[in-house]
């Protein structure tokens, strides 16, 4: 499964809409493989899903995201896990093991059972 994370140094970009770098990993049998980095401009909404689709992304983990972007991504059948914050390595490892990211990595003010998540 191809999982993408919008990153800023060692952490998740706080705002997806203004992120610049995408980290993509393959997760197979709880193992993280094929780590790659891609330059990314989500502010250009028109190309957003095309770019993610081209990279074969199936799951996207990101920080705060606006409704326009989240609707576009969800409509393209990519699983979106928004409002996640913290260290990228810890988050990917947790996800690869099949453990839930919420509430540990959930941004303040967000609830794991919120319908927007």
């Amino acid at each position: 499964m191809k999982v993408a994370v919008t990153i800023w140094d060692e952490k998740i970009s706080p705002v997806f809409d203004s992120a610049h770098t995408l980290l993509i990993v393959d997760i197979k049998n709880e193992q993280i493989k094929n780590i790659s980095y891609h330059s990314f401009e989500p502010k250009f909404e028109a190309r957003l899903t095309e770019e993610l689709g081209h990279l074969g992304v199936e799951v996207l983990i990101c920080g705060a995201i606006s409704e326009t972007h989240s609707t576009l991504i969800e409509a393209s059948s990519i699983q979106l896990i928004p409002f996640i914050g913290g260290n990228v390595t810890q988050i990917i490892e947790t996800y690869a093991k099949g453990n839930p990211l919420a509430p540990t990595f959930l941004m303040p003010g967000c609830r794991a059972d919120s319908p927007s998540l």
């Binding site: 706080p14 705002v15 610049h20 003010g109």
Partner: peptide, 25 residues
Amino acid sequence: ITGISREEAIGRHCWNVFRSNMCQN
């Protein structure tokens, strides 16, 4: 404005609370 309570905000990194387009760069 943010919809985040003081209790939840204090002690957290500002970028995870304020979540502005300016935070990163």
